[in-house]
Design a protein around this nucleic acid. Sequence first.
DNA 1: TTACATACCAAGCGCTTGCTTGGTATTGTC
DNA 2: GACAATACCAAGCAAGCGCTTGGTATGTAA
Lengths: 206, 206
Amino acid sequence: MNQAKILQLLVADNLVSDPDSARGRLLREAARLFREKGYERTTVRDLAAAVGIQSGSLFHHFRTKEEILKAVMVETIRLNTAVMRAAIDAADSNREKLRALVSAELESINGQTGEAMAVLVFEWRSLSEVSQVEVLKLRDIYETLWLDVLSALKEEGALLADPFVVRRLLTGALSWTVTWYRPERGGLTQDALTDEVIAMLGLSPS
Amino acid sequence: MNQAKILQLLVADNLVSDPDSARGRLLREAARLFREKGYERTTVRDLAAAVGIQSGSLFHHFRTKEEILKAVMVETIRLNTAVMRAAIDAADSNREKLRALVSAELESINGQTGEAMAVLVFEWRSLSEVSQVEVLKLRDIYETLWLDVLSALKEEGALLADPFVVRRLLTGALSWTVTWYRPERGGLTQDALTDEVIAMLGLSPS
DNA sequence: TTACATACCAAGCGCTTGCTTGGTATTGTC
DNA sequence: GACAATACCAAGCAAGCGCTTGGTATGTAA
């Protein structure tokens, strides 16, 4: 199952906005602007101009500016959780599952949803505390996918370090790629980068 | 040479503000607030209140709010570069130098300068482009220290992966600890965390 | 004592911000 | 074709923002 298909299912269930709808287009532009300039430096007038409407008209789609940020984050997590789950299900061994997770996360950070993922990392504090709690719950589901695989590898004896610590070091390492990894400029392919990451983890030979 | 001694030398050379001076106190409070609420959400009135003066009085010490952010970043980089250099010089082998670097960076991220380091990571885009270039130059000096050690390890055959890629994955992994690592709540000591990081790098046995 | 610099206060200016309001096209439904 | 819901515009409000201004108290040097 590819990402397009998964997206289609989520749109049908109303869990993610149709990218072609007015709301979907706004969220995509919002992710772009939030990433480029940061949430606070992006005005509602910027957002409106990006989709060609007046700033006041935004508030027919969202009650507040923060709601836009939250929607970007929530929908991105939903999509990526589904993609991760599919990646895991398609793999057989735990080692393959781990590689699939690393590869999928790199794709989500550096591919289509990259802007939204960067927003998720860097604009966290711009959410109200109430929203933070809500988004955190969704992230926990996502993190559980990782921890299950890492814990299984630990039990197999393939992973020596603590799964929690490894996941957190990995979160940082992978998120950070958004600041420097530019596959389109040649150099490392995404697959090669995945290899480097897996190599860095130093799994003991099976 | 410990961090206090290094700080003293930098203060004497006017490269870093005396923490006990008005300017130094303001910068420390600024780092705290910028980290806690983000640069944009921190007002000049917040900054002034934190050191007990009127908002307008800030502008006798700094011409603009951005200049405060930049000063926090520049002084933090200067201090940490000096600390890193001392850590390297005190170590004999390249393996020990690497461990010293990891340990020192974890200390700078999670110790006294932690708030300022977090600002350096998360408030980057709030700097004007001109300032970004300026700060980047300082960071390059700092990064060279890392790359020299990693490249030497690569030549020795101890490191198999690309030094540039490893440094960047490490930057992310170590920076990210600021979001989750809480040594004061028990659990992992900073030394143990250093061990996990070194282990994760999977250096081949010498 | 004079002269100047430093560090600060009290007040507020001009601008931008998120958001509201009252109204008008456009679309979908029966 | 009637009618409501939806999507939008034009105008602007109230609040908060970074920063300026004109002035005063304190310290320092000749």
